[in-house]
Amino acid sequence: MSDVVLETRDLVKHFPISKGVVLKTQVGAVRAVDGVNLQLRRGETLGIVGESGCGKSTLAKLLVGLEKPTRGEIQVRGDDLTRLTGTALRRARRNIQMVMQDPYTSLNPRMTVGDIIGEPFDIHPDAVPGYGKARAVRDLLDIVGLNPDHINRYPHQFSGGQRQRIGIARALALRPEIIVCDEPVSALDVSIQGQVINLLESLQRELGLSYVFIAHDLSVVRHISDRVAVMYLGKIVETGNDVAIYDQPTHPYTQALLSAVPVPDPRLRGHRDQIMLEGDVPSPADPPSGCRFRTRCWKAQPHCADQEPRLELRQRSSHPSACHYAEPRITTRHY
């Protein structure tokens, strides 16, 4: 267990929905993250996939302390972040940093690149290395493949891919062990995406980093991840190593998701048996009873409405799957 650097237990985030302007009364809650258990090991990449609104960004923000959990634990190297306060909390937080999705809006346009990358040192002055902040920032620029002489330029003077490198340099400043990447390449063109992915992978090897890597592009996630967790409506529905998830998925949602991904090979046209999901994802403010996927699931039985399936090993699934009827599906290969 000693190599587990991050672990969550029954992590929950509900956003209250209130009515009224003056006297606010809570009339419900968006159950954005609703009982997530995950483990991240040293030097490993955990991919998180799932459709829009399933709670990926909320989970990321909980992990780095940008949102306060409604309930549950976040253990970083054995310390529960949700119980720490003051200096101990700040120290623990240093260890887990974040790279955001949008390289066009996540950087303050009025700050120079040097100020952006150096800002974490202002918040944590005790983390400034002996040789000083300026040198530290230049080193960081160099590590992510940017010219250290551009330290006084502004974000708009960089391309999207370069801006994403700035975000990565900033996340590296406090020498964290864990980096949470929320859609780090989604806004980039394929040819540029590769540059950022390659950078993340080489940094991981050199610095022994652990990543939580969120993305909706399933082929990018497969490329970079050791293990993958699939989310649906605030819960993880299936988790396993990349082969288990991509080649032997046992949860109907994972199977549908993979079958819907268009494959860049015209020879497979008409030869893949695609599962067409009907309807839309239900509202996370009012999720279905029992299994949350049942309203769109072709295998659903009455039992699925009554009993919530737990994420666990099953008779026909050698990796954890939250479906009462989890089993592999014989199909053409997806990738």
Binding site: V190, S191, G194, I197, N198, S202, S219, R222, H223
Partner: peptide
């Protein structure tokens, strides 16, 4: 170059092919 930059299974564990520079 564009087609080669798509992540493929046989590239797992290796760097992705990229197009150098920018548009």
């Amino acid at each position: 170059a564009l087609l080669e930059s798509i992540p493929r299974l046989d590239l797992k564990g290796r760097p992705l092919n990229v197009i150098r520079g920018l548009p």
